[in-house]
Design a protein around this nucleic acid. Structure first.
Lengths: 115, 115
DNA sequence: CAGTTAATTAACTGATTGGTTTATTACAGA
DNA sequence: TCTGTAATAAACCAATCAGTTAATTAACTG
């Protein structure tokens, strides 16, 4: 199961599945248990459990414990990272050319440090 | 190769790879040929060609033809879609109000759920 | 035409993904 | 302590992914 990818890749990968995005959307309305999250899907419970594990490993959700229920909670950190990443390209669907240059320079610096 | 997924999934999936994100970053600085794009990577040319195909199928790049070169060009439509999707969750990483809000919601639900 | 360069296709490989069914763990309540 | 419920783990499977090397297509050049 997904070994040591960088956080951004893990987040993108986790969101590249409609089921998992639907789970995120559901959690935006409030915390929910695994069974509650699984209800809308024509899929076994273990399958949903696996999706939740993917989301958890990507940091997109956290899970608490309340008796035998494991309430899931949306954690937006990775969403913020994705937003930050994609916003650097905003000029490509709009008109302004600000801030991209510094981003590219930053990337170039990282490359020189071999990353 | 990747059969008929929805556009958003295809875009997220395409971006869930550091090599492909680096290619996107490079193309943000201007169009480039396959060899130019492949240069920074310790990877065979066919491997890069495959990455480009993934990006193309996701609509993130387009390819023209200039003699034997295939200039690649960034297409930001899918990036805009991702931006739109993720912005729906902005409230989850802005402000401490939301954390308090979900905390209160959680407390409240402890009493009335699973009656 | 022959030779070179740019890029893709083909065939193959090992790892990962997304789902299944069955078994197991953890807890609550009578 | 026994039973039911919530959830995960284990084992398995087919499909996809990310890379390789070797072959092929397509275009320019001498």
């Amino acid at each position: 199961m997904q070994v040591q990818t960088d956080p951004l890749s893990a987040a993108f990968s986790a969101l590249a599945d409609p089921t998992r995005r639907a789970i995120i959307a559901r959690l935006a309305a409030g915390d929910a248990t695994v069974n509650e999250l699984a209800a809308p899907f024509d899929m076994s419970l273990p399958a949903v459990s696996k999706h939740l594990k993917v989301l958890e490993r990507a940091g997109l959700i956290s899970r608490g414990r309340n008796a035998q229920w494991r309430p899931c909670k949306l954690e937006a950190g990775p969403l913020k990272e994705i937003s930050g990443w994609v916003e650097h390209y905003r000029r490509f669907w709009e008109g302004s050319f600000d801030r991209l240059d510094s981003y590219l320079k930053e990337i170039q610096e990282k490359g020189k440090r071999h990353e």
